[in-house]
Design a protein around this nucleic acid. Structure first.
Lengths: 183, 183
DNA sequence: CATAGCATGTAAACAGTTACATGATTAT
DNA sequence: ATAATCATGTAACTGTTTACATGCTATG
């Protein structure tokens, strides 16, 4: 396991929540962490095999399930290296936003096209916000007693605040660009 | 030029601002777009040669400069494909935040370590905000007449709002975690 | 009976970083 | 003198996505 590859730790982290199949991990990431972390199939399944070979997770075939599936469980050693990684100062990662880049270069284009880009972004963000608010509500009903509760609330809260910021900023940008294209 | 590789368009975009050397592009990205776009050397220089070979930019050796350097200029064809790309709806890119992932998995750790992570993040973001406010001020003094002005202001404004949000959110998280570690 | 979701994986192509390599100039 | 900055590039490694490949089960 290359120590710099965060994918391994992300997967290990998901399994620290509880035993899961590869498919389950995908689901959890999609539902809960997709706004800040996700893995593609091409990373996930080979990584699970690698982590098993290294003894950081163990595999068990679940035959009780409707469909036969491989359920993975984090081992003592796995938990140990995960904790060690979690305690290290998070590295700031590089962000790439095509929307921002295109707006930065907006002078090359008719303002109307820029407005359209922002409008779509605002629309999509509103959908994200609605989803977040919904899952926050359902989460607060069903998982209040989980040790993960306060932490998941914090990450959700960030997502909600960010979505609101984006929606508002988009509105302001649209206003400004509309004025520009009219004069 | 693989049409899916945004690096080429980002570089072309920088050259749409004006003729620049590879080094200049690096500087502009570092100073102005690093919060949403940057390229590493390993991408930049080969890309410049590729774009030249394709006729999207042209190279000229500047001997007047203190140091001899290669200055690139966007061509008519280059401007054309750039505009076409800019007009396409920006794809939403995948974000990876180690900080958020670690907080999401925070239940594995003593709250104090999580607090420390957030504190560092808050501190770093304050520095980013200070820089942004400074460059905003200097920019509003010197470039008001540039056609890029309103667009650059919008991207800067987003950066400033985001930084403020992060600082505030960090404060709230620290409060919450502090309470947790005391009870 | 068709479509969506469950479930696991591989291979090839592509993207991206890091370390290496070089060497001049300017400021301290 | 020495460090920082200017200036350009390559090679090896690593990381990541996408397309391919398979086939079952539940729902409409």
């Amino acid at each position: 396991m290359p120590k710099a590859n965060k994918s391994y730790f992300a997967i290990l982290g998901m399994l620290s929540i509880g035993p899961m199949s590869g498919y389950d991990i995908r689901q959890v990431m999609q539902k809960n962490t997709s706004l800040f972390w996700a893995e593609s199939d091409g990373q996930l399944y080979p990584a699970l095999n690698k982590l098993t070979a290294l003894g950081y997770i163990s595999q068990k075939i679940d035959k009780n399930a409707i469909r036969e599936k491989k359920v993975y469980q984090i081992t003592k050693q796995g938990k140990a290296i995960l904790k060690k990684w979690l305690a290290e100062t998070p590295e700031t990662h590089i962000v790439r936003s095509e929307l921002m880049l295109k707006l930065f270069l907006g002078a090359n284009l008719d303002p109307k096209i820029n407005i359209e880009h922002i409008r779509i972004h605002q629309y999509q963000t509103k959908a994200v916000l609605a989803e977040l608010l919904e899952s926050k509500a359902s989460f607060e009903k069903n998982h209040v007693d989980s040790p993960h509760f306060p932490y998941w609330q914090m990450t959700m809260d960030f997502g909600i605040r960010l979505a609101k910021l984006k929606i508002q900023w988009s509105g302001d940008v649209i206003k400004k660009l509309t004025k520009m294209s009219c004069t």
